[in-house]
Amino acid sequence: MPVRLFLALLAMFVTGEAAGQVRAIEVLGPRPFGYFIGDVIRLQVDVVLDEPFTLQAGSLPRPRPVTYWLDLKTVAVDDRGINGGLHRYRLALDYQIFYAPLEPRELAIPGFSVTATDGAHRVEANVPAWSFLMSPLREIMPRGTGDPVYLRNDTGPMILPVRRWLSLAIASGIASVLLLGLLAYNRAWWPFSTRRKRPFVQAVRAARRAFRSGSGAEAYRAGLLCLHRAFDATAGRAVLADDLSSFLKTAPAFRPLEPEIGRFFQASRRAFFGADARGAEADLPRTVLIDLGARLAEAERGLS
């Protein structure tokens, strides 16, 4: 067994020396038939080298006219790395053919050689030619269409696309106007400058929040305060129980609610100055307070 292994290793070593350091070269093309003038053919070349060897970038073919009917357009190298002692490369070459055959004709993309080196030695890797069948684009004798030579037409002028930008401009313009309107409403700019804040709407919300936070006297007082602030904000000054009649003169929309408002101020006085929050709450329960706030909020809509 060890003898066999030794022999196998020796054979590998010997053949490796004999075949040089280039293990394999394979040219993979697309279909080898059915090409017309102007077609681009991508050839893929797989090169396998022994490990220490690397391809010399300078030895690769450069994009250029190869022959009078063949252009090499692009060359790309993909170093696929070293695996199992072998260094693999994949080249991608784009050729464009400009041959005008009169009948189907076999042509060959000529081969080329690339240089590999391990620092001390240089070896040539010869890439073979690749043959394909080229087809004519036109008949040999044109039909009798009048013109001695029929040519395809010019491209004509290229009109720039306007509609796309125009529709985008219209859409974004409408959106801008709408958004500006929304912003003006939000900030109470002209023409919404007469629009007032709705203190009672916010007061009802704040009072609900306050009541939710607890059932004690503090929470009740906080709820009362919310409505007080709404009265102050509506009047533009602090409104006390004694100022109620003058307040209702400036804000007549609240007049139908006068008795309820009076009841609120009484309860408030009892809660804050009488320090009897429980008694005040019995007088004006929370649900009634919220209800009053909601009716005030409804009334304030008629103010502006």
Binding site: F36, I37, G38, D39, V40, Q96, F98, A100, P136, L137, R138, V149, Y150, L151, R152, N153, T155
Partner: peptide
């Protein structure tokens, strides 16, 4: 390369 009219006229 996809300008087929150019291919045709080049052939001519």
């Amino acid at each position: 390369p996809d300008l087929w009219d150019a291919r045709y006229n080049l052939d001519v």
